[in-house]
Amino acid sequence: MRKLFLVMIALLLTACGGGSGNGDPAGAVQRYLQAKVSGDAEGVRSLLCAAMEADAEREAASFATVSGASIEGMTCARDGETDRVKCEGKIVATYGQEKTEFPLGTYSVVQEDGEWKWCGEAS
């Protein structure tokens, strides 16, 4: 009985975790933004769409000139069944004594090889 309970918990956790993985557009965007803000070049590369491959280096170094970049209050949700993900929250960073903020917006996503990828800001 106890074993069955543990298995069910594990299944439940897996199901929930799936929501923030590359199988879910909102989760892919969140993971991409985290990778970008932390300067994680590998993470950025793995979550960036093929059309923006040439921008990978720039994307990964985007917050290199500021310090302490982090994301506050991020929630992302897919816009219906479209290829757009809308995020609330903001990136905050400091430059010298000055705090600078970057509000999150709406992003394009594409599915490549079954995985959702971040593909720039939605126009």
Partner: peptide
């Protein structure tokens, strides 16, 4: 502040109150 020759082409660095998505 913090802008560089690289990120000036990253739309995330554009002022969202004045610039288009």
């Amino acid at each position: 502040v913090g802008l560089s020759t690289a990120v000036i082409f990253d739309p995330m660095w554009a002022d969202s109150t004045r610039c288009e998505a």
